[in-house]
Design a binder for these strands. Structure first.
Lengths: 157, 157
DNA sequence: ATGGCATCGTGCGTACACGAACAATATGGG
DNA sequence: CCCATATTGTTCGTGTACGCACGATGCCAT
């Protein structure tokens, strides 16, 4: 068990003027979001029940489970992924036979995606642990704070 | 100008039972953190003033500016990056002559990192825009909500 | 009907993110 | 002093994430 705190090697140069509020990277929203997202991903990985499924793969499969069949671009919009990113996610899911695709008969530009039987089985298993992932991630907060955080994050997206 | 909302192609299969609360991926903390982080990164990129500097490179340089000289591992702990990730970040900063390194005279395992003059000049320029990045990211919230979000995120890290 | 513009999926390049394995070095307890 | 254990930094593999450019296709207004 090692300390999570950095050994103090050196003092920071305090460039604080008396009036200006200090700019601390640890208090900036972007920094906090990066760290919080890291922690959430780590909790997902150990809690969801299958170490080979990533958060983005999971959300893609959950959406395909809801809609049955979706084009790749539309799926990307629904789960907030760039089409280039979506490409890689879908490729890996197809390689594992969790997702299948067929050309859209009504639009030759599109590929329709759907879960395989295997993919359905897996996502329904993972969905059981879904709430536990969120619960564990939000554990440091009380119920009211949890609701508030969800609400605030929804607002800034 | 195209709509950001997906065209409705198909209804989701409503699998809602009357009692159980629906599991919506859009309300899960991990999903929201991923989306919020995406947005924050995009705002950083267009607001910080140098499109070639990433958020992680920025936070590394800010920390090096505070401490003058740090080992790679310690810097990684201070900014919340894995040592393998840190490796790549530092390599790119060194390639651009923004960061310099020397062996630690007191510990042959360590490499001491510091900003070059060029790196100092750049980070001090970027620090001017730092507050604007955070301000823009938090724009959808009022001041009280902004403070609250920062506080809640700090708690779950 | 056709020409301009948007959309869809792909490929490439760059950058985080991290687990795992590794070699070199440091440290502390017996 | 010496050995078990820990730390530091590197490399490899896999997976997001996205900008850009491309070709194929669809759509719409003239």
């Amino acid at each position: 068990m090692r300390s999570n705190v950095a050994r103090k090697q050196q003092e920071p140069k305090s460039a604080a003027s008396p009036t200006a509020r200090a700019y601390r990277i640890e208090e900036q929203i972007g920094y906090l979001l990066r760290r919080a997202h890291q922690r959430a991903s780590a909790i997902f990985q150990v809690t969801v029940g299958d170490p080979n499924i990533t958060p983005t793969q999971y959300s893609s499969m959950v959406k395909l489970n809801e809609y049955t069949e979706l084009s790749q671009n539309l799926l990307g919009r629904l789960v907030g992924m760039d089409k280039a990113t979506m490409q890689g996610v879908v490729r890996r899911l197809k390689e594992r036979r969790l997702v299948d695709s067929r050309p859209d008969p009504g639009d030759a530009r599109r590929t329709l995606l759907s879960l395989t039987t295997e993919g359905q089985r897996l996502v329904n298993k993972l969905l059981i642990n879904g709430p536990a992932v969120s619960r564990e991630t939000l554990k440091p907060l009380n119920v009211q704070e949890q609701r508030h955080l969800i609400e605030l994050l929804s607002k800034i997206i």
